[in-house]
Design a protein around this nucleic acid. Structure first.
Length: 956
RNA sequence: GCCGAAGUGGCGGAACUGGCAUACGCGCGCGACUCAAAAUCGCGUUCCGAAAGGAAUGUGGGUUCGAUUCCCACCUUCGGCACCA
């Protein structure tokens, strides 16, 4: 028994201890009513349940299984209120499932490798292992105070050699099956954590480290990767699993599938430059190419006179990624290589530029630039004066034309009016009033005719938007090619010298605000200026061009993904060593499976140097090659801890099994996980990795089925009372141990369910938890303290009805993870029971039946008080092995209903009527009703709507 | 910019399939018990109005006899992604 300080709960001292128990019909002996003392009750029951193995989950083929899993904690030192929020409602649901007849496995363990242990080692000079295992001991104690149904025999700790032996074993399987590979590449590096990070661990606009917030830098390093991209397509498929839309959307977004074509451009000397595009229908508008600065062809394309500039740009680009990239600066930069490429669709020679807005890591690191139909290419082309040729019609058919003051005869305006063309008149600079004309598709031709008639000599007019026409005195030129662009520009410069500074027609037009919104668009539309494809409608264009490219051997349909392979190397000590030996003769050789685990040595220096501490160990890294026996060296990097958590649900099945990562018998019975709960912040990390892992293992014949977890539900986050994220520096952290001391675990558990929409979370409210505590104390006294009198039959029947209605909603809400309404329904029923008791219901058979139901429904929410009351009321141990009450629809049925009377949709009266009232009777009662009469104000009812069991609405 | 979620009393939130808006709890007010306080119990508590009544679920429209719920547009907050070709 844990002693507790009385001054924390002075109100208990005041509770009367002795009552006279007077049962209806006879006088019972005096009986002691104990005080509700969670500090005494809770540890007592926790110990007994553990002693009895009450929550042991063993294979039992006679019962349906339910594998309920909640994300395992990192042993940071202390349990957070967030852990309670995540785990206790999950526990309640697991308990509910158990009472419903399922054989429920609800395990717990620790994700015990990872950086904080090393940081603690550096800061406090304590060994990471010692720090970790001390924390585990403390957190295990705290977890036990929840009174959850964890089966501790199945505890798994990822830093135990018997665990990471199999983490390493999985690595070896992946290595042998070409799912793990090593490559030199620019990787994200956290200068504070001194290690590389997976792409998923780099967050935000400023690309900071997920763990410590430091902006990451790029480093060229030889690192180990898993081929997650091989499963990109399959990871997009969620058939047969019930996961939140939010998580699915985040993953789908992250995987980033895009359909398009790869197209082969060539350099002038015939070298292929492959690009990926989602818009092959815009190929004719590709007026230049852009390569990533690190693209391998840059070297060969650069001409001597551009070399200095190109090299300077590359150096600058590298430095930019190496220093923190200023993310706000989005102005596009780039330089011309001096080289040219050939556009395969029309044989035109186009300049090749390099720019850092093209990423080496996506697609092929090279793009065809279509400035007329891509926002970034447009901005780049305007900036550097590259030609912009529209090749897709605007779907809205709108064109615009600005008629300069004095450029047309006066009768032009009346001509416009006659043709029904809309325009506005406004000053153009200081030159006088111009006409701002907006043309629909079929108005372009009449407009051209009109313009040709009234255009004064030495002037021109342009039509831009859907059609691109320049009207001169001697003819019309269409902006359909680079040559046309040049010719138009030259003529304009001659006619109006102020435009001389412009390098392209589009640049000239871009200075006019009226045209701003029609110069560029990225929509699908009819192809124009595209040779034989001109006129192809937008709905077919992409497919038609792709098919043609394939036939011509110039390209093919391609799907590209944003997802990248998973970088798993970490230059840190406290992790599972990557089981690879580098031999000068045999290369990278996996450690033979019978020699696993590769044990982590205890005697290391863990100074942060940027290299794995294992590398600095005097002896550990030196070994011999398992293949040829030559002197060899171990890989000194360790594995990303997400590797450990990708399969912990399998280790729980048999944490001490030594013939494999898990006992197949256990696997066959328990897998897949039926319900998985945890935070949505893992959507693009753990939850993708673990799906990848399962699918990869399935293909290696180790697991079965396509998905590891059938149902996923996310809880939100508990914030501090100030609405901010809890953190020690803000001083707004709520300590669960303290809350347990104040109110008991049952109250904390119930409050975690009651206070929030589980998926949302919210700020901690110190007042609300007291309300929950008050309720449990009320339950205690109401059930134990005898009452007097004899209640009427109808009252008892109503009590029983309420109990079954509660059972119906509680059952439904448990299934749907709606924990707040479970508690409120139980509170409501308790309020009814208190009233019924005051009316003399106590001790009657129905009272006893309802009490029993109540404790069973309360058991998953507040397991200790339910067990204690169950025992005190003389029922056989344990309430937690009872079957969930069975619902009696007849008992729950209402005999009377409140019939709502509406006139024109407004409530005017309510009548209590028999539940089985007939339609005519209901309508008649409504029409006769004085309040209804009053509001009808003598009008006759035009329509009477009857909703059975609910309302009559009279429309008058 | 793109994807997604959410906006209901002073607060957390409820309302199942389009049918009594504001359950349950917090807070607040009044009362009982008490020498007193705490605790507990009872009553009240969306807003306006003396009342009859009226208004209200982010804003504006629409569908409907009837909309927190369905449709359209917009605003705000939060989460994710972000030069992704």
């Amino acid at each position: 028994m844990v002693p507790r300080s009385e001054n924390l709960r002075p109100w208990w001292a005041r509770v009367l201890l002795f009552f006279t128990w007077r049962k209806r019909g006879g006088v019972m002996p005096e009986k002691i009513i104990p005080v509700y003392n969670p500090a005494e009750i809770e540890p007592r029951w926790q110990e007994k349940w553990e002693r009895d193995g009450l929550y042991h989950a063993d294979i039992d083929p006679t019962r349906p299984k339910h594998y309920a899993l909640t994300m395992l904690p990192y042993p940071s030192g202390d349990l957070h209120i967030g852990h309670w929020y995540a785990m206790t409602p999950s526990d309640a649901r697991a308990r509910f499932k158990r009472m419903c007849g399922y054989n429920v496995l609800f395990p717990m363990g620790f994700d015990a490798f990872g950086l904080p242990a090393e940081n603690a080692a550096i800061k406090r000079n304590i060994h990471p292992k010692e720090w970790t295992y001390k924390n585990i001991a403390n957190m295990r104690r705290q977890l036990k105070s929840m009174g959850a149904m964890f089966d501790w025999r199945r505890e798994a700790i990822s830093s135990d050699p018997e665990y990471y032996r199999w983490t390493q074993w999985f690595f070896v399987q992946f290595f042998k099956n070409d799912l793990a590979y090593r490559k030199m590449s620019p990787v994200d590096w956290c200068p504070n954590c001194n290690t590389t990070l997976a792409r998923e661990q780099v967050w935000g606009e400023d690309r900071h480290c997920e763990r410590c917030g430091t902006p990451v830098i790029k480093k060229d390093l030889e690192q180990w990767f898993f081929r997650t991209t091989r499963y990109a397509e399959e990871l997009l498929n969620y058939d047969g699993i019930d996961w939140p839309e939010k998580v699915r959307d985040m993953q789908i977004n992250w995987i980033g599938r895009s359909e398009g074509a790869s197209v082969i451009f060539t350099t002038e000397d015939g070298q292929p430059i492959e690009v990926f595009t989602t818009r092959p229908d815009t190929l004719w508008g590709a007026t230049f190419m852009v390569l990533a600065p690190e693209h391998p062809l840059v070297e060969g394309l650069t001409t001597p006179d551009h070399r200095a500039e190109v090299e300077a740009y590359i150096a600058q680009a590298v430095r930019q990624t190496d220093i923190q990239r200023e993310s706000t600066e989005k102005e596009k930069t780039g330089v011309f290589t001096g080289g040219y490429a050939i556009n395969p669709v029309n044989g035109r020679r186009i300049p090749v530029w390099i720019a850092d807005y093209v990423l080496m890591s996506y697609g092929t690191g090279a793009i065809m630039a279509v400035p007329a139909h891509d926002e970034r290419d447009f901005a780049f082309a305007i900036k550097y004066g590259l030609p912009i040729i529209p090749v897709i019609e605007r779907p809205d058919g709108i064109s615009k034309s600005l008629v300069f003051p004095g450029s047309v005869d006066d009768s032009f305006e009346s001509g416009l009016k006659q043709a029904g063309i809309s325009y506005t008149k406004a000053p153009v600079g200081s030159a006088g009033e111009g006409l701002f004309v907006t043309l629909q598709r079929d108005q372009v031709q009449p407009y051209v005719a009109l313009m040709r008639r009234y255009l004064k000599p030495e002037n021109w007019n342009e039509i831009v938007g859907t059609q691109w026409l320049f009207i001169f005195n001697d003819g019309v030129i269409e902006l359909d090619s680079v040559e046309a662009d040049r010719e138009i520009l030259e003529r304009c410069k001659k006619l109006y010298p102020p435009v001389q500074g412009n390098r392209t027609v589009m640049e000239m037009l871009s200075h006019l605000p009226f045209y701003q919104d029609v110069l560029f668009h990225a929509e699908y539309g009819t192809m124009i200026h595209s040779g034989e494809f001109s006129g192809t409608p937008g709905t077919e264009a992409k497919r038609a061009v792709t098919t043609w490219l394939e036939k011509q051997g110039k390209g093919k349909a391609t799907v590209n993904y944003r997802l990248r392979d998973w970088l798993i190397s970490r230059q840190r000590y406290w992790g599972a060593p990557i089981p690879i030996i580098y031999c000068p003769h045999c290369g990278a050789v996996p450690v033979p499976e019978d020699q696993l685990p590769v044990l982590l040595p205890d005697d290391v220096e863990w100074k942060p140097t940027g290299e794995s501490p294992l590398k600095l160990h005097p002896t550990w890294r030196f070994t011999t090659c398992p293949q040829c026996g030559a002197k060899a060296e171990r890989e000194t990097d360790t594995m990303d801890t997400f590797m450990c958590s990708s399969w912990y649900h399998l280790r729980y099945l048999s944490p001490h099994y030594d013939q494999g990562p898990f006992d197949p018998k256990e696997y066959d019975y328990w897998m897949p996980v039926d319900t998985y709960t945890g935070g949505a912040e893992h959507a693009t990390m753990h939850l993708i990795y673990t799906r990848f892992f399962h699918k990869a293992l399935r293909d290696l014949g180790i697991t079965r089925g396509n998905e590891p977890m059938l149902q996923l539900r996310n809880q939100g986050q508990i914030l501090g009372p100030d609405g901010q994220r809890m953190s020690k520096s803000r001083g707004n952290v709520v300590d669960p141990d303290e809350q347990v001391r104040l109110y008991g675990a049952d109250t904390v558990r119930a409050f975690m369910m009651f206070g929030y929409r589980w998926a949302e979370g919210g700020p901690w409210d110190p007042g609300s938890i007291q309300g929950v505590n008050r309720w449990l104390r009320r339950v205690w006294l109401t059930l134990l303290e005898p009452g007097e009198g004899k209640a009427s039959e109808s009252l008892l029947k109503a009590l029983r009805r309420k109990a079954h209605q509660t059972l119906r909603s509680v059952t439904r809400d448990f299934e749907q993870f709606e924990f707040n309404t479970i508690v409120s329904a139980l509170m409501e029923l308790m309020n009814e029971m208190v009233k019924a008791k005051q009316a003399g219901a106590y001790g009657s058979p129905i009272w006893n039946e309802v009490t029993e139901m109540y404790l069973k429904m309360l058991a998953p929410v507040a397991p200790h008080i339910s067990e204690e009351l169950w025992g005190l009321l003389g029922k056989p141990y344990s309430v937690h092995t009872q079957a969930w009450p069975s619902f009696d629809a007849e008992a729950a049925r209402e005999e009377e209903i409140t019939l709502v009377l509406q006139v024109n949709g407004k409530v005017r009266d309510r009548l209590v009527v028999p539940a089985d009232i007939q339609e005519e009777d209901a309508k008649r009662l409504a029409l006769e009703n004085p309040a209804v009469q009053k509001f009808l104000e003598g009008r006759t009812a035009r329509q009477v709507i009857y909703v059975p069991g609910r309302l009559v609405n009279i429309v008058g």
